[in-house]
Design a protein around this nucleic acid. Structure first.
Length: 475
RNA sequence: GCCCCCAUCGUCUAGUGGCCUAGGACGCCGCCCUUUCAAGGCGGUAACGCCGGUUCGAAUCCGGUUGGGGGUACCA
């Protein structure tokens, strides 16, 4: 391994329109390694060769997602983005070189012929064209000539020595009949061109590795250090798939997961800092990360734990920062209230009360909507529960009367004592007594501390809502 | 089928031959606090897949087995 040379890691996503959480973890691990050395580099290469599914805007999405994670394109350790499609010439040269060296040969077998002919059902291509000396031509693909004897040994930083017998590796295609190189070749040619020293990627690539290592050697270069990260799985222990699982980083972002919580959680999928700490900022984790310390078994993406981390990070924010981070969800453009009704100062007044009550930022809306809506949104289950006959109407009308008293200072502590008295007169503890008022004013049985909320809402609006609830009760 | 990887509480993990009657975190349960709900505090539940070795001694080393997973394209 080129430990003397500065580390050059790479992150090589194909632009498919969404950023997978597994990719995010790979990127983070690669980023940490690159940042540990002054001259370390993290190379971003967009593998856009599959023109069929590939749009320019996806690339922008990748860069934004990386930036969200703290992997900034303006950081001196960041290099790229490079586009695989720009290196097509280089790929063809590599294919040519391999052919001239006799390390690859042309093959005109169709898929059907390969299928029909194979004597060993356990192997794919049988090497039919190996020695036919075919020249390049239409309908002829280029295959790599896998050496006859011995194994290829992959030295993996996470898994150790992994042996692949050459007998189990078929002569794989490296360039299509139309001359265009395949992933296996393009990927290696690019890594060589970009002087990548360490390939840290998902375990699903482990089976490709002996082929790629063979290619590196055939092309005259020392293979990089390999590290294959365990796959991230769902509750059924299958690799996270975009069809059935929630894998898009953007979806977590939209729900209100903080990047620092996501980064922290992702780093812990397969790796641990060592002591008994789990909540640890990136700046502390980065220098501690060792790829050889990464676990080799698959890891379940546990959103419950992510949520817990996120709540922890939210509570750690200053109030002002919390307010700032909530803005995207409070914006009247997307929130259920109108521009005229929204007032950030009002939100700021209750923000400290809300901060410990949300695990993801998106939940902020249901916590404060009653402040900015003309009418609260009544949760029917809450209504039924709080407005029990004999309690609901009683409490509401008595409270309405009590709150009309101009002597009553409109301040949380005063309001609390007032309601306590109203409740006591009816043999109700505060817990029970406050319920109808809470539902009348906020629409729900759970929420922010009531009296602070009332104070912010104001006497008139509070009384109006209690009155309206009374009407609703009698309707 | 074949190739390859993996195996500690439900989950993420610590653990690299004795410090382990296996530690932490999430979850779950209980108690406390309490104007609801959270948050917070305290306590609890729960694991070395199985069988053989090696060794004075094994969660840690070796073999097998079982069970998971990944890969098997002229996709990336």
């Amino acid at each position: 391994m080129l430990t003397e040379e500065p580390i050059r890691t790479r992150f090589a996503p194909s632009p498919t329109g969404m950023f997978h959480v597994g990719s995010a973890r790979s990127a983070l691990f690669n980023w940490a390694l690159a940042r540990q050395q002054d001259e370390g580099r993290f190379v971003l290469r967009i593998e856009d060769t599959d023109a069929a599914r590939n749009k320019p805007e996806w690339t922008e999405g990748i860069i934004q997602a990386l930036a969200w994670l703290g992997i900034s394109a303006s950081d001196p350790h960041f290099e790229g983005p490079y586009f695989q499609s720009d290196y097509a010439g280089k790929h063809r040269e590599s294919a040519e070189q391999l052919y001239k060296q006799g390390r690859a040969y042309y093959c005109d077998c169709t898929r059907e012929q390969v299928q029909a002919r194979r004597d060993n059902p356990n192997l794919g291509y049988d090497g039919f064209c190996r020695d036919r000396g075919l020249e390049p031509g239409p309908g002829r693909a280029l295959r790599f000539r896998v050496p006859e004897g011995g194994p290829t040994v992959v030295d993996d930083a996470i898994r150790g020595r992994v042996e692949f017998d050459h007998a189990s590796i078929e002569d794989f295609v490296i360039a299509r009949a139309d001359g265009s190189p395949l992933f296996a070749l393009a990927n290696v040619a690019d890594d060589i061109e970009m002087q990548i020293t360490h390939v840290v990627r998902g375990e699903e690539h482990l089976s490709n590795t002996p082929k790629q290592q063979l290619l590196w050697e055939a092309l005259g270069h020392t293979p990089p250090g390999w590290a294959h990260l365990p796959v991230i799985v769902n509750e059924k222990r299958q690799k996270l798939s975009k069809r059935r699982d929630k894998v898009a980083l953007e979806s977590y972002q939209q729900e209100g997961y903080l990047p620092e919580a996501m980064v922290n959680y992702l780093m812990l999928l397969g790796w641990a800092p060592g002591d008994d700490r789990e909540i640890m900022p990136w700046a502390e984790m980065e220098p501690l990360f060792r790829v050889s310390d990464v676990n080799s078994s698959s890891a379940f993406f546990d959103e419950k734990k992510l949520r817990a981390f996120n709540g922890e990070y939210i509570r750690g924010l200053s109030v002002e920062e919390f307010v700032r981070r909530c803005r995207p969800w409070l914006d009247p453009e997307v929130a259920p209230w109108s521009e005229e009704n929204y007032d950030e100062d009002i939100f700021r007044a209750v923000a400290p009360l809300a901060q410990s009550r949300v695990a993801v930022l998106g939940e902020i809306v249901l916590n404060v909507d009653f402040l900015f809506l003309d009418q609260p949104v009544f949760d029917e289950a809450s209504w039924t529960k709080a407005m029990k006959p004999g309690v609901g109407a009683e409490m509401l009308s008595a409270t309405l009367k009590r709150f009309a008293d101009p002597e009553l200072a409109w301040e949380a502590e005063e309001l609390k004592s007032a309601l306590e008295e109203v409740g006591q007169a009816r043999g109700l503890k505060l817990g029970k007594a406050q319920a109808p008022v809470r539902v009348a004013v906020t629409g729900r049985t759970v929420g922010l501390p009531l009296f602070e909320s009332l104070e912010v809402l104001g006497r008139d609006r509070t009384r109006h809502r209690i009155d309206a609830a009374l009407a609703r009760l009698n309707a």
